[in-house]
Design a protein around this nucleic acid. Structure first.
Lengths: 291, 291
DNA sequence: GCCGTTACCTGACATAAGTCAGATATATTA
DNA sequence: TAATATATCTGACTTATGTCAGGTAACGGC
């Protein structure tokens, strides 16, 4: 790491710091200070529990409470105790609040659009932003279980299929693989996890129950912008934990030698290479792990 | 521009907003609020006039004034009237202030280093950051005249030579070109301009005086991260203005067909293609413009 | 049911940041 | 030289943000 590298990073910091006001003028465009606006938008994003809001925005409990009271007084949100645990409170948008959030969204979209529109290579700019966002936000990447039909899961799977078709010599056609298996990747037989960074799914992995005495790990994929951050390891650890919770004792997976980083990961994570256990046309490496 | 593009940009915004506090903890690491810390560092960067500081940090005049008084009271800066215009005031670091700035720099470097160190591909991350910083900071790119020997000018020239050696079929060796000509690119015969974005030089152009009845434009280069933002056009317009101010009426330049974007720019900017006017081995296109 | 813990709230502050209307001194122009 | 413009400063605010020490109600394990 040279002095020049550091200068480059610091130039980025300054550019972003200088523009952050501008980036967030949507928060300031509606006559409301930043604090309440951020809370309102967090609620609009579906963050409901007061504690979650606090953690997400890193607010002091007193401050959070006051901001919520303010929004309530404006008629933008309502709060009620959590039925599961009445110590917690859940915040919800009122219709007025939903309109207000929509107005913020529209401002923010317009702004994002303006930045993209004036750039000569929007795709390159977006790819760069993805990379930076993943690098900076790595601590805030959350793993969530979803159904395979969830649009975020589908987005990951489509990206995964596209990548396979580019990287495998013979291409890839999902219908030839032992697949569409949504039901087998849902509770109680299996699971499907996605990694979510600020609302965007940037990785996935599936656990597919079978009746052959083992379950399979399928569809491990990480967005290119987030590779090398240890996310695959986190997803694997979490899906193993889910498998254990479902009473599964033996896991198998198959992969292709065109994906050497995946093979290296499995070896590091304690998987043992075994012989072919299916007749799927694509894989040429097979692994097993007892858990 | 799709909804997904906008979602990507907004994820970037959120990631950066969330981290900006962290990115700037160096500003908070020395028991001083953000306002004074930013002013102190601006002065440390060489921004001396009160008005410039105000513009750079977008501060109200009253607030700026108060922050300056605070730093003065701490013994970190001194101010004195500008000898050219006694209405203006110039701020300067005291030795204590310089130490303090150095401490901020060290914190900031350490932090930048930590971000880079934990990333698997620091060069890719830096390239992405450059691209984003140029896209966001395009309005803050300043053109400055420097001597060719200035390290920022040298950095640009080295990048330019490296790029030429990659793009020209026959490679490029600066010593074969009609060059080292520093003196001819300095006042009163010529000029050398760099484009500076937050302290980093990201583009250059030279005006080389000759005694052949014309001056030459040389060494037009833009950092890859800043291409397409209209910076080359700005640099050309500014160097032409300098030429005019030096009483030069006719400009010439040469270029190579491996640089089609440059050729297109010259055509757009009103240059006329002419026949070869030197025996430099690299160029194969020659242009002239009366100004 | 008791007790320690948790989640959230309230009140009382303290500090930071931003605004605005003059005041002062200097420069510029007619 | 008078009138006007400019650069900065000061004082008197308002608002926003952050902090801390309790207070209340609900939960969970015994």
């Amino acid at each position: 790491m040279t002095r020049d590298d550091i200068a480059r990073l610091r130039r980025f910091n300054r550019a972003v710091t200088a523009e952050v006001g501008a980036l967030d003028t949507s928060f300031l465009g509606r006559g409301r200070p930043l604090g309440p606006a951020r809370v309102l938008n967090a609620i609009g994003q579906g963050i409901a529990e007061v504690g979650e809001i606090r953690a997400y925005l890193r607010l002091d409990s007193g401050l959070a409470s006051r901001l919520l009271r303010g929004l309530e007084a404006e008629g933008l949100i309502e709060t009620s105790p959590d039925p599961q645990d009445a110590r917690r409170r859940i915040a919800r948008l009122t219709p007025t609040g939903a309109e207000e959030v929509a107005a913020y969204e529209a401002l923010s979209d317009a702004q994002a659009g303006a930045i993209l529109a004036r750039h000569p290579h929007p795709e390159a700019l977006l790819a760069a932003m993805d990379l930076v966002a993943s690098a900076l936000g790595r601590d805030r990447i959350a793993l969530t279980e979803v159904r395979v039909g969830d649009p975020r899961a589908q987005a990951c799977l489509n990206a995964y299929y596209t990548e396979l078709s580019q990287r495998l010599k013979q291409g890839f056609d999902v219908s030839l693989s032992a697949d569409p298996e949504a039901a087998a990747m849902e509770a109680p037989r299996g699971a499907f996890l996605i990694a979510v960074s600020d609302g965007r799914a940037i990785g996935c992995v599936g656990l597919k129950g079978t009746d052959k005495g083992y379950a399979e790990i399928k569809r491990l994929w990480i967005d290119p912008s987030a590779r090398g951050l240890g996310l695959a390891t986190r997803l694997m650890a979490e899906i193993e934990a889910r498998a254990r919770a479902l009473g599964i004792a033996r896991l198998r997976l198959d992969t292709n030698s065109a994906l050497p980083e995946a093979i290296a990961l499995y070896r590091r994570a304690g998987w043992t290479e075994i012989g072919r256990f299916n007749d799927d046309p694509y894989p040429d490496h097979f692994f097993e792990k007892r858990i």
